[in-house]
Nucleic acid binder design. Structure first.
Lengths: 239, 239
DNA sequence: TCCTTATCGAGAGCAGTGCTCTCTGCTGTA
DNA sequence: TACAGCAGAGAGCACTGCTCTCGATAAGGA
């Protein structure tokens, strides 16, 4: 990070202070988000910083802009967590251990940052369109998960899914899968990719339902249930 | 409905007008929700009805109360749709057809009422606790889905899941499953119930991801992909 | 070193929000 | 028919996002 800054041309004092200011605003906003939930108030953030609300507009053009920055940071924080959880499994051939470690990282991060998770994977704010930056950041987690599968396939450990429907599926879906494969899972067979997609959906389905209160009065042993689901998905993918 | 009203004791004129007023407020609010997204404005609703905002408080104690009423209606509307989609399959032994029909009804309703769906299954409003009424209404959809499985098991068509992990799973989860079975799926074997839960999660995971924009740049053939996923889940449950 | 220029924060203000309180006119009910 | 209770209006409070203007300040070129 220091290296990055010093590599930048002319890190003028003003620019550095400005960057610190932006970081602090985002930090305070994150705190408010965690405390109050989704209703982030610009004025309250400004108040917390000893500033007047209009001053914030020097740094963020609008409340949506601030939220977008938080979303981008959120995807990257989640991506960091998942990447290092996967990397923590030193024996790279232990695909199931990597899968469990990475998916648990998703759940742990979500439980630790529920409001941010809701920002990323909950109902989108009306009229909000994700800028291109967020798409790349959002892809980091799927990339890690897909990497586990491609590693297994490349090493020959995994040849196909542990469970798959007969038949190739509709043509239109096959085109989507092909595009996805080119993007994040080069060379992966279609059925394996499909099982991976299913597991990806199940992962976020479980986490979202837990966080959004849909497990109330249904599942109490949440960590155990999550693990069981992820084991099932590992079986399904054949890892 | 008429029968219900006429069965009520003394449907005083005032009470009937009041009920109609409440219905109209909810209808206008639903329209606004569909048009503007989640940011429902009481004042705008009142304006649309030619009223002043304070008058609305004669009917709903707060904005949250109105939202709760909409949520309750939403669960019931979804429940209606799913129930009749299941009932539309006249041959009750066609479990897979019933499953596909019911799950498609979920997706269709969600696509037709995205803002309401987000209200039900999206990020919850901070500090909001669902009253007991909504829990019963929310259970209607799972009850239909579970009914398909219990029917199949009772008739002997289904004996166990088409795919299940070896081992019984953690004790705590087994307790949760037992409670759920007592509630909505009497007599169902544990593995089958577990497969049903997985399918339930997958169903809402897919619908939520599609509605909340997570399929952008990933899945274009959404209806086909949805069907494929639901077919896979049917295979997994062994129906 | 001085001076221009860009930046930053404050303050006032606008239109909108949820919600409360008071007042009045109407109306269903006894 | 008399009237109690209800519905709606209106004013008002505290809050929101956002805009605009205006000084103070500090950076960087002459």
């Amino acid at each position: 990070m220091c290296a990055i800054i010093s590599a930048m041309p002319a890190p003028s004092i003003r620019a550095r202070i400005r960057a610190e200011m932006i970081d602090e605003i985002k930090a305070v906003a994150r705190r408010h988000l965690a405390a109050e939930g989704a209703n982030l108030s610009l004025r309250a953030v400004a108040r917390d910083m000893g500033m007047v609300s209009s001053a914030l507009y020097r740094y963020f053009a609008s409340r949506d802009d601030l939220l977008t920055a938080l979303i981008l940071d959120g995807y990257n924080a989640l991506g960091d967590a998942v990447e290092s959880a996967d990397a923590a499994v030193t024996d790279r051939g232990q695909l199931r251990a990597r899968w469990l470690s990475a998916t648990r990282a998703v759940r742990d991060w979500a439980l630790a940052n529920p409001a941010e998770y809701a920002l990323l994977y909950g109902s989108p704010v009306p009229g909000y369109a994700a800028p291109q930056d967020t798409i790349a950041a959002a892809a980091r987690t799927p990339v890690v998960l897909a990497g586990i599968l491609t590693d297994g396939y490349a090493s020959g450990t995994v040849t196909g899914p542990g469970f798959a429907p007969s038949g190739a599926g509709p043509e239109a879906v096959r085109a989507d899968l092909a595009r996805t494969r080119d993007g994040i899972a080069p060379g992966l067979p279609e059925e394996l990719l499909h099982a991976g997609l299913t597991s990806w959906l199940q992962l976020f389905g479980v986490v979202s339902f837990e966080l959004f209160g849909q497990f109330n009065n249904v599942i109490d042993a949440r960590a155990e249930f999550f693990d069981q689901q992820m084991e099932l998905m590992a079986d399904l993918m054949g890892i």
